[in-house]
Amino acid sequence: MRAGPATLSMSAALGLLYVFLYGPIGYVIYTSFAVDIVWPFPPSFTLQAYVDLFSSSLYSEALTNSLTLATGAAVISTLLAAAGAIGILRFRSRYRTAALLIFIAPLFVADLLIGISVLAFNARVLGLPGNLFSAMAANAIQGTAFGFLIILAQLVRYNWDMDDAAMVFGAKPLRCFFEITLPTIWPSLFGAFLISFILAFNNLEISFYTLGAIPTLPSVAWGSLRFGLGAELFALAALVNGFVFLVFAVMYLLMRLGIVRFGYRGG
């Protein structure tokens, strides 16, 4: 089929959008290896920025905090989102719509608002200073919403009659879940975990207000950006981008292979 002018211009739009999105990212990755970060031409490469980044005690402390925060938030999000999605799809209840709305509500509240309202609530109502756990919980609110949507998207195609079949043949509910349901839906649980992990890892505004003085990678980057774009920021951006793309590559492969092998398609 010959592509018409409409199709051609749409593909041009797609190309331009990619350039727009990836131009800055590509430039950052390139420059992170450059000797002169202001005008990195002609190319001359060094790993100095990475050496500085890894030897900085501030960044390594921030990294530890971000990892802890993200892991905690991702575990909470995945468990709550999976239970919620299964409950809503599997069991009839007149509260189904209400529950669905509650689970997606955090998507419609800006990070800044989550951050300051949790700060105000913790500090003035509960009397809690900023700490890692409340930051985990605050990030998990958003993670739960994203995870819920991801799991729901796969779970709507799951046929719950399969669990009935397994039960008739002698499987107890828990056995049923691990033998039948989980093998079919685990890619979406894994996807929910990864997405909520990355979101919490890179979140600035929620973490910033709920953590107090505890540094995370985004907050240190924020602090450093106030004084201009340093070489170590280029290196950090390059590393985080690399990490995100690795995760997306894994998810892509899972969806490509996973849906073919695990997705329940009726027959």
Binding site: N159, D164, A165, E179, I180, T184, F262, Y264, G267
Partner: peptide, 8 residues
């Protein structure tokens, strides 16, 4: 009715 064989 739909056989409900476990696809995995």
């Amino acid at each position: 009715q739909n056989f409900l064989l476990f696809p995995h």
